[in-house]
Design a protein around this nucleic acid. Structure first.
Length: 896
RNA sequence: GGGCGCGUAGCUCAGUGGGAGAGCGCUUGCUUCACACGCAAGAGGUCGGAGGUUCAAAACCUCCCGCGCCCACCA
């Protein structure tokens, strides 16, 4: 790449050899293809733990390898990249660490589905062959995912790419498991778990999605065994009564006090079931008595435990009626059984009433959406959370971990409070196999390495637990397992705790909360200091993106047509306050146009600026009013963007930059500089170009985290360094803030706009230069003199004459702008009707304004209580409005 | 049952105590030496409703209406 600045390009025509030659339209495709490779080649993404800089680390939430990414991932990777790129420019040693997640159940399901299409039953393949198939799947989609992420421009350190089942992380999982096992935090137990009958595996509480379902609440009758009466109980799952082993009432319930200790007779099995008293029963619900089904309901299981009731499991793993039930129901699936049991009870006259529809909440599998069965599946592995949740809660409460936005703290704390032991065993093949072995002599042991013999007795007759771990068990280690834990690597020492975690609210509990627990337990410190929660990307109608709706957007399609910068900016511009993001074509197109705007603004500035390197401002004495205004606005933009980004308010920062760049820099700053750029003395040209170059170059740096490609491509043309990626984040210049310049330039904007309005109202051609006279106040005279040629150009005036005495308004159209009277000697040629309409409209608008202010000022309480500067401001506004109406009204009178 | 978010221009949304904003769409004019992926001007809003606090409310408080989400062992 050739260096620039060896020749003076000012005013010279662009030639193909000119390295600054820029075509009139920005070419995102070419630029993006070029720069990502180049950044990689130069090693900009690679972190160095020994650089001596302060560390800044974000681990990417690892996408599942279930398939290609969707635009939700574009958001998920872009927001952290924005943060990382800015911190890198601020001089931190940044590590943005990529990886993918094996996503146990989710991936197993998609691979099974694929096999099903080839009519292959995983059981026929066997465990090992099946797992090999999944690894093949991983190789394909893991690779595609990486390519997708690269296309988005994310500055991830690919030399540290990890996968939740790679060798190092498998080791981490083992060490974590064994440590927790030996510490008594992991135990094996038999209790009711959430069972997905379709995936035939247990699920944790967090993997259940509750949904309102219309069912029926059936109240049926249990007759007392001694025939002396009955107890009525209600249920929404009548088939489970096949597994009833008792009836329970509240101990203080007088209605049933006499029945406690007696038995009822099961109408379908003939067995006697005890009536017992337990605090868990809510006497105010239904009949106040409940059927107890220990094998199929968590509450009932606990009641059964307390009272020594047997657990009668009447369901098979795929939710058919098991052999434990009476013969006539065996083999039925749960819904058929529901109907049949109801029929039988009705025949027996045991149905008391049926409430239908009865809306209640039912758990569904978060992967396949099948109704969950609370089920006694046999032994499962659990993480005991009591010792983990306290510290995890405390870390958030005392601010060691901060949530952005802060309102997510409360759901987190509440979730921790209500947390119960975590079921981590899954009856799947794809995942980290539980590192526990059982020997023929009944020993059970956990081991870091696959053993050759039983660690207790040396027996070689042993086998490993067939289950795998919940995929989130490995995910929870992500912030440190990826850095090398359990080894005390340089990376781990340097980058842990990581700085920020940025992710969607949907995995706050599944993932974020657990990383905090495990980080505190295994590392002794929080896994990250800030948690930034963002929303979900939705379709333009606000619907979730899903394959079944067919509204999934592949980020690569967007990038192909609009560019990665456009996608990034569109997302960032809408990513505020953890709100969901309805991603519409319009936003993306607006962002694409913005990239083009950046390109063209750069084109203009670079064609005028002859320097090379970081632009330097001219001496302050040379700054014109538009310069001062622009520098002031630019500084304001930096301050606002910085403040927003420190709090991770991406949309706010993006909007601030967008507005400054387009509405201020381009619409006014560049336009106001043109008189000097095109018609000024060489000194004026250079000064104007330098100010623009200085502001633009810094603006490109500020925009770089959002739009890395277009900013790099344009920034290169300054010849200020290797890459904008590693250029410093702009330093603040508080001294550039200039309220006076902003006020004065605001006046010139008003004058220009007023003249443009006038021209438009009368349909005067843009090409027709107007002559305008004014008799300004001293203050106005100063302002006009400071920006006369700018006003003339912006409003397309032939001359703007400043009179020494009030001019004769006869024959002139009168305009007012911010209290200043402007005379346009054109009255004779203007349509009086149009002029009258124009004047009337302006006058009534002003009068409405004035009336409101007058009412305010007439309010005694306002004068007394409002701050003096507010009152003065209103007085000033009123006075100037009065001035304006006076002139306009006079003219209206003259027109008759 | 508990908690949270949202309701502002036709659409999507920003705006948290002092003159109602942006993008897109719409109307009108303009190929002017960065950009028609553009420039300029304009139309369009009882800021969900009702009370309250305040000199002053789109913003703060209360209630209500509507939409959405999360949590919960409502049998």
């Amino acid at each position: 790449m050739s260096k620039h600045g060896t020749s003076d390009r000012t005013g010279s025509a662009q030639s193909p050899e000119d390295p600054r030659a820029m075509p009139p339209a920005y070419d995102a495709q070419a630029t993006e293809a070029k720069w990502y490779t180049e950044w990689m080649r130069r090693g900009y993404f690679v972190a160095h733990a020994d650089s001596g800089k302060d560390p800044f680390c974000i681990v990417l939430p690892p996408p599942n390898i279930t398939g290609r990414l969707h635009v939700g991932h574009a958001l998920n990777t872009t927001l952290p990249d924005i943060v990382v790129r800015r911190r890198r420019m601020q001089g931190y040693e940044t590590l943005f660490l990529p990886g993918t997640d094996h996503a146990g159940i989710a991936t197993q399901v998609v691979v099974q589905r694929e096999l099903a299409q080839q009519r292959i039953d995983p059981k026929d393949l066997g465990r090992e062959a099946f797992v090999r198939r999944v690894w093949q799947w991983k190789e394909q989609f893991g690779g595609e995912i990486v390519e997708q992420i690269k296309k988005m421009g994310q500055s991830l350190d690919w030399s540290r790419l990890r996968f939740t089942m790679d060798e190092g992380l498998a080791r981490a999982v083992r060490v974590a498991f064994v440590r927790m096992y030996e510490d008594g935090l992991i135990y094996r137990g038999e209790r009711i778990i959430n069972w997905c009958p379709r995936d035939t595996t247990a699920l944790s509480d967090s993997e259940i999605e509750h949904e309102e379902v219309e069912g029926e609440l059936v109240t049926f009758r249990y007759d007392l065994s001694d025939g002396s009466g009955h107890v009525d109980v209600a249920t929404t799952r009548i088939e489970t009564m096949l597994g009833d082993t008792g009836v329970a009432v509240h101990p203080d319930d007088d209605r049933y006090r006499a029945l406690v200790g007696k038995t009822v007779r099961h109408p379908l099995t003939g067995k006697d079931l005890p009536i017992l008293a337990d605090e868990a029963v809510d006497p105010s619900f239904g009949t106040g008595a409940i059927k107890v089904t220990p094998a199929h309901d968590p509450t009932d299981f606990e009641i059964g435990q307390r009272h020594g009731l047997p657990a009668l499991n009447i369901l098979t793993p795929d939710a058919h009626i098991s052999d434990a039930a009476p013969e006539e129901f065996r083999g039925l699936d749960r819904y058929e059984a529901r109907t049949r049991v109801l029929e039988r009870l009705r025949e027996l006259g045991k149905i008391v009433k049926i409430e239908r529809p009865y809306v209640h909440s039912v758990g569904h599998c978060y992967r396949c959406h099948t109704e969950i069965e609370p089920w006694l599946s046999g032994e499962q592995w659990f993480v005991a959370v009591d010792r983990l949740k306290g510290p995890a809660k405390q870390a958030a409460l005392d601010g060691r971990i901060k949530f952005f936005p802060e309102r997510w703290l409360h759901p987190y704390v509440q979730w921790m409070d209500g947390l119960r032991d975590w079921n981590i065993s899954r009856q799947l093949w794809w995942g980290h196999r539980i590192p526990v072995w059982y020997c023929a002599n009944g020993h059970q042991f956990a081991a870091l390495e696959d053993p050759d013999a039983c660690m207790e007795c040396g027996s070689t007759d042993f086998e490993q637990d067939p289950d795998v771990l919940d995929t989130w068990f490995s995910s929870q280690l992500w912030p440190f397992s990826t850095l090398g834990w359990p080894e005390r690597t340089e990376d781990l020492e340097f980058f842990y705790p990581t700085s920020v975690l940025i992710t969607g609210y949907e995995i706050l509990y599944l993932w974020v909360a657990r990383m905090i627990m495990s980080g505190l337990y295994l590392m002794g410190d929080v896994p990250f200091r800030h948690v930034v929660i963002h929303g979900l990307v939705r379709d333009p109608q606000g619907r979730k993106m899903s394959k079944s709706l067919g509204n999934v957007i592949d980020p690569l399609d967007v990038i192909k047509t609009h560019g990665a910068d456009a996608l990034r900016f569109a997302l960032a511009r809408q990513a505020g306050g953890a709100q969901d993001i309805p991603l519409s074509q319009e936003y993306i197109e607006a962002a694409r146009r913005f990239a083009n705007k950046i390109w063209n603004a750069s084109r203009l500035v670079l064609s005028s600026w002859g320097g090379s390197g970081f632009p330097e401002l001219p001496r302050e004495e040379r700054w014109t009013l538009p310069d001062r205004w622009l520098l002031s606005r630019h500084q304001a933009c930096l301050e606002e963007a910085d403040a927003s980004l420190e709090e991770y308010r991406f949309s706010e920062a993006a909007q601030t930059l967008y507005r400054f760049f387009w509405s201020e820099l381009c619409d006014w700053g560049l336009e106001a500089a043109k008189p000097r750029l095109y018609d000024g003395t060489p000194e004026e040209r250079e000064a104007a170009a330098s100010v623009l170059a200085w502001v633009l170059e810094r603006s490109l740096r500020m925009l770089h985290p959002f739009m890395p490609f277009v900013t790099e491509e344009t920034w290169q043309r300054f010849g200020a360094g290797e890459s904008v990626m590693i250029a410093p984040w702009p330093e603040a210049h508080a001294e550039h803030r200039d309220g006076d310049a902003e006020k004065r330039f605001g006046f010139t904007e008003d004058v220009v706009s007023e003249i443009r309005r006038f021209r438009k109202a009368h349909g005067l051609k843009d090409s027709m230069a107007l002559e305008v006279r004014m008799f300004p106040t001293e203050e106005q005279r100063g302002i006009i003199n400071a920006a006369k040629q700018e006003i003339e150009r912006l409003a397309n005036l032939s001359t703007l004459d400043l009179l020494q005495a009030p001019g004769d308004p006869a024959g002139c159209a009168r305009l007012v702008a911010d209290g200043a009277q402007l005379l346009v000697p054109l009255a004779g040629v203007l349509d009086p009707d149009v002029e009258r309409a124009r004047l009337s409209k302006r006058i009534s608008a002003i009068e409405a304004d004035a009336a409101r202010i007058e009412a305010k000022l007439a309010n005694d309480a306002f004068i007394r209580r409002a701050p003096i500067d507010i009152v003065e401001k209103e007085r000033g506004r009123l006075a100037s409005l009065k001035d304006e109406t006076a002139g306009l009204s006079a003219q209206l009178d003259e027109l008759g």
